[in-house]
Design a binder for these strands. Structure first.
Lengths: 338, 338
DNA sequence: ATGAAAGCGCTAACAA
DNA sequence: TTGTTAGCGCTTTCAT
């Protein structure tokens, strides 16, 4: 392993100059900078991140905590964050909490505290006050993605507005019997997302002078199977079945499309379906949806954090940053049959 | 941040003893170990990983490189590795190469070399000789998952055997016109997987005295849409259409099931379908498949690496470790109609 | 079994 | 603009 002093000797300067030239901190004349870079290149020198971190207190590494990794939303956010970090010379250390309680405690009590990360991104995780406090005590910036955390800067789409938009799209097509497949409330990783989306749905109906019917609301677990079962229930009713379904996630919406097919109904002729996410499968199924952009959310989280880490810059600490969303109309929604 | 000397003072011992007691290296009397642990607990002491790494040369961190993250196989392997690492006190630093060439170079030339990881796991990545060499030059153990890499320890299922098993399952049900949807060869991240699976398919047919028909072989891109299109082509043929399809991945197999439905065919009455993976959606679609266990592959990769890192133990360097697979029969395969 | 002390390889005052 | 040098917080010989 070639070290900094070897580069210094090679370039005929001091180690301090090498450090300055390569890191960009401090002033170095263009001429010497070139000399140093050449020497470093030639020797294949790469700074030892441990030594650099120990001396400077900066890790150039940020921790990302997710409840699971094998879900489209989470892995997409992580991917967005990763890309952005790479461009900034940062590493991403991943903590996936699949194991449950014990693992979670070990991550928060131990892993995140050992001076290995400069900041942390928590994805769709409802952090306890203790967890937030211990992170803040270390002076580690923290941002949440996908749900508001008490006293923490977070990025999330406006779930109420998203649901309202989806419902309004259906209303504008003439639908009046619009069902909603929401999430069960005990999905603790999803905050009040299920509730908020239901509220948006009801708001839109109210505004159109329609009273939300209890029998048109079903809950499921955000999976395709859950959506399928709920939709079968909804559409199997021989009388007064809904002409449109708004599902709180694309996976559930796809399940609903499949359920409709199995019941001999044609989408969108007999029933319109809209979801939320713009999941990777949405296009294949022709699903209309409200797109959110998880990769962009990951990238934005990184941007905020790096900004917070750069000295001097102290952003307005507005606690919730709304993220963009967008209606995408495909072939699963159409005018109501007259 | 409370440091090691504070703990030492608190416990009435030297910093060296604290280090030994907490790390498990070197001999410490049970009594003092207890004292030290108590003091550390009380003060909420956590070793500074940077200082520890700098002094010891061990990072307790391993790098995982993936081509993408938002695919079931990759995220599952990562999740398996993560879990296993956490239990061993290791961190996982993730590099996702989505960006292409530039990103890839930056990861291999820079990120992986800065003494931050003890070893690396490459998932479904065909590493160049240069990449392998530079990693080996640093003495960093390397294991590949999901495809053989020249001169590198790898974990993979026996693709030929997997394909043979899937095909034999269909043969045993009486099918003789069995189609295969394979991968296009230019998916460079997939090694010879497409070819190997095709070979296994043909082997099985040959053994049954059936000549593989060229018109029963289609390629696709491992996605649901690709499988759908290929299957429409295969099943749309009014004469002599296949009675069974073996797809090289579950996503393609699910696409095939949907295509069959759209053509008015009933699975498995009119056509049987089998895939490979045991994807999270396989169960919902009732898909028979050859399961591979990506989480287990991730865990196994970690096990090998940690073993390699522990002093003394030098495993047999058998270059390819075959991973388990298993036929799972659901409702998409049945006896051929007589 | 424990302690003293010399680094690990770099960064950041401080000086020049 | 550049060099000198004192740490960063731990681990690990080498003594004892």
């Amino acid at each position: 392993m070639v070290g900094i002093d070897e580069v210094a000797r090679h370039a005929g300067v001091s180690t301090a100059t090498v450090s300055r030239a390569l890191s960009g901190n401090g002033h170095v004349s263009p001429a010497t900078r070139l000399k140093v870079e050449a020497a470093a290149d030639e020797l294949g020198y790469v700074v030892s991140s441990t030594a650099s971190s120990l001396a400077s207190g900066r890790m150039k590494n940020i921790g990302v905590v997710v409840p699971f990794l094998d879900r489209w939303f989470f892995s997409s956010v992580v991917e967005g964050a990763q890309k952005s970090l790479l461009n900034n010379g940062y590493d991403l250390t991943l903590y996936s909490l699949t194991g449950g309680g014990a693992e979670r405690r070990s991550v928060f009590d131990h892993f995140l505290l050992r001076q290995r990360v400069d900041a942390v991104i928590a994805i769709s995780l409802e952090l306890t006050a203790t967890e937030v406090t211990s992170l803040h005590a270390l002076g580690k910036p923290l941002v949440g993605v996908g749900g508001p955390i008490e006293g923490v800067r977070t990025l999330t789409i406006d779930d109420v507005a998203v649901a309202r938009l989806a419902t309004e799209h259906l209303l504008s097509l003439g639908h009046t019997r619009i069902a909603h497949i929401g999430g069960n409330k005990d999905l603790d990783l999803d905050f009040h997302l299920p509730t908020n989306r239901r509220v948006g749905y009801e708001n839109a109906l109210d505004a159109a002078g329609i009273t939300p019917a209890a029998e048109l609301f079903m809950t499921a677990d955000f999976t395709m199977r859950g959506g399928y079962q709920a939709a079968k229930q909804l559409l199997g009713n021989p009388h007064d079945r809904p002409t449109a379904i708004f599902a709180a996630s694309d996976e559930m919406a796809i399940g609903a499309i499949l359920a409709a097919k199995d019941l001999g109904l044609v989408v969108p002729r007999d029933v319109s379906v809209i979801g939320v996410d713009d999941h990777e499968l949405a296009d294949f199924f022709g699903l209309s949806t409200i797109a959110q952009f998880p990769q962009g959310q990951g990238a934005k989280a990184v941007e905020i954090l790096l900004d917070q880490l750069s000295p001097g810059k102290h952003l307005t600490p507005n606690l919730n940053t709304p993220m963009p969303f967008e209606l995408i109309v495909r072939s699963s929604t159409a005018q109501t049959p007259r």
